[in-house]
């Protein structure tokens, strides 16, 4: 099921994303799966820049550019405003970056997930504050260079999926642009579930990751195949399903393609490999698989 050709493009041409932006591709795929009966929320981030400056906008559905930390309660306010008027055929979609989700918006997202307000929340994770020019976030991976970690990020990436699962929300899933069919299936599935749905989407960023502009989909595939970013779903905080059996390529193949990891020492690469192996084991255990 790839909807690209069948559905209208709701992220219009002429948007202001950098060349090769994975985030813009991700938004386009999500909006296609959502369809026109959608109200979208964006927050200050690359999404705001992509949307363009008044009187132009790339967004093809009614959209509000809310404040940084409140993608979730803005979407929840819209969803409840519609509900109280008896409007049931419009879905509310929130887009926020990793800064707006892992960091400044985490509390507000937690509050909405606790209430199980009926929204689809998509975290467009490019692993740093890219719109302000590449600063570290709590989603930035170990050892990665950013403008505020010139010697490499000393901490690991936060596990946002586990944080969401701890809310027992009905549906959370990882997705990435290199697997568009999987991504759109997950959005379609989320549309059919009432409550707070969370999609954690990895979106390669050529500008911030120091990569050529023509390899974002390929990098996104490598992230999955190296187990840096496995594709899985969590239902009601307890039922884990792995959606793609990775080829388990060495992480080096993913890291070596990106300028932000150029300075890595051998032991740092080995550390990332160990972390990926350990996380994969943990995930398989949660999914009821052994070994």
């Amino acid at each position: 099921m790839v909807l690209t050709e069948e559905r209208p493009n709701l992220l219009r041409p002429g948007h202001a994303a950098c060349a090769g932006c994975g985030l813009a591709t991700g938004m386009k795929l999500v909006l296609q799966a959502m369809g026109p009966r959608t109200i979208a929320v964006i927050v200050p981030s690359c999404e705001g820049a992509i949307g363009g400056v008044y009187p132009y906008t790339a967004y093809g559905v009614p959209t509000i550019h809310s404040a940084f930390e409140i993608a979730a309660p803005t979407a929840a306010g819209i969803a409840n405003g519609l509900k109280v008027q008896g409007i049931t055929d419009i879905q509310v979609l929130a887009f926020a970056g990793d800064g707006g989700t892992f960091d400044i918006g985490l509390q507000a997202l937690s509050g909405v997930a606790k209430n199980n307000d009926d929204i689809i929340y998509v975290c467009l994770d490019n692993e740093g504050y890219m719109n302000t020019g590449i600063q570290v976030s709590s989603s930035t991976p170990s050892f990665a260079w950013t403008g505020t970690t010139p010697k490499g990020n000393p901490r690991r990436k936060k596990n946002i999926m586990e944080i969401m699962a701890a809310h027992y929300n009905p549906y959370s899933a990882t997705a990435t642009i290199g697997f568009p069919r999987d991504l759109q299936q997950k959005i379609t599935k989320a549309k059919g579930i009432r409550g707070t749905k969370f999609i954690h989407m990895l979106v390669p960023c050529p500008t911030g990751w120091r990569t050529p502009s023509d390899i974002s989909p390929e990098l996104s595939v490598l992230a999955v195949e190296t187990n840096i970013f496995p594709l899985y779903e969590v239902e009601d905080g307890k039922r884990y399903t792995i959606n793609h059996q990775p080829r388990r390529l060495p992480v080096r193949e993913y890291l070596s393609r990106q300028g932000r990891f150029r300075h890595l020492k051998e032991e740092e690469i080995e550390q990332i490999q160990r972390d990926a192996d350990e996380e994969w084991k943990k995930l398989r255990y949660r999914a009821g698989l052994s070994g």
Partner: peptide
Amino acid sequence: MDKPGFLVPV
């Protein structure tokens, strides 16, 4: 929904 505008633009 019929006139999908963009609220609070830059």
